[in-house]
């Protein structure tokens, strides 16, 4: 197991040097007179998880929604696989902080909803959804409704929906912030296996330093007013460790401390 993971990781790390899945260049976003993002550039290597970390109000969600095509930047470009983003596309899937499940639809319809909007036939999309429902561990809940599920299970539905459209890039907006601490830890572990097993690019917004260090291949630290990238940290050694011991690792603890030292003066 350890052996295998190490192999996979080395492969990805070497490939990543050249292969950039998403690149953001000189993006600015103004709301009226308020500058939310100023001249921000950032690159996201393929097959890796990049966290956007920063205090609240630093524009990390704004940046994520610009990459998703849900917001238009005031200036600058976003490229996904070398193609400029002009709006939402099939190459990206979004996981929402508040899950954004349809309360009137069953788990099955919710998971298949992305495919439904793409015009996939009912039997086909339900077969795909079935597979991803099983993948996130919700088999047996296909006919349940969101209000019958716990917060953690709801976010699994949101995750299955994003996975089922088989997009190359997964955009996650503080996906675990509305679930309890134990569930969150389980999610973080599952996310690590997901990054290892699926060859997808993950962009992950969080305000938790520990979470960012635990799950990321690359951490972009954003500072507020106007938002800019202050630092990029790559916890390279951690990916080869067993996920159960990472939190005791000296490198993990050092990076957490280092990030806190650079952020603390920006917290009100």
């Amino acid at each position: 197991m350890d052996m295998l993971q190490t192999n996979v990781q080395t492969e990805i790390t070497t490939a990543a040097q050249a292969d950039i899945a998403v690149s953001v260049s000189n993006v600015s976003k103004n709301y009226g007179d308020v500058e939310a993002l100023r001249d921000l550039s950032l690159e996201f290597p393929r097959g890796q998880l990049t966290s956007l970390l920063g205090p609240s109000g630093c524009g990390k969600t704004t940046l994520l929604k610009i990459i998703a095509g849900l917001l238009d930047p005031t200036s600058g470009d976003v490229l996904v696989d070398g193609k400029a983003v002009t709006g939402p596309g099939p190459d990206r899937a979004f996981v929402f902080q508040d899950f954004a499940l349809l309360p009137w639809a069953s788990v099955m319809r919710n998971v298949a909803f992305g495919l439904e909007l793409r015009g996939v036939a009912k039997s086909e999309r339900e077969a795909i959804a079935e597979k991803y429902i099983a993948n996130v561990g919700l088999s047996g809940f296909e006919k349940s409704y969101p209000h019958e599920l716990s917060g953690g299970m709801r976010q699994r539905v949101g995750l299955a929906r994003a996975l089922s459209v088989d997009a190359d890039v997964l955009l996650m907006d503080e996906p675990f912030s509305a679930v309890d601490e134990q569930t969150r830890r389980k999610f973080q572990e599952d996310l690590l296996s997901l990054v290892a097993n699926e060859n997808k690019t993950f962009i992950f917004v969080t305000h938790s330093i520990e979470e960012a260090v635990y799950v990321s291949d690359q951490i972009a630290i954003l500072l507020p007013r106007p938002s800019r990238v202050s630092d990029i940290i790559r916890p390279t050694g951690l990916r080869e460790k067993d996920m159960l011991t990472i939190r005791r690792d000296p490198e993990y603890l050092d990076i957490v401390d280092e990030i806190w030292a650079s952020l603390r003066s920006y917290v009100e």
Binding site: F96, L102, P103, W104, R118
Partner: peptide
């Protein structure tokens, strides 16, 4: 209508008509 539901629809490239009939009206 919760804005995240509409954004969800848009992120999956729903047309305006689909957003109205599949998200806004049921909501």
């Amino acid at each position: 209508t919760p804005s995240s539901l509409i954004e969800m629809g848009k992120s999956f490239q729903a047309s305006r008509l689909e957003v109205v009939t599949k998200i806004i009206i049921p909501a």
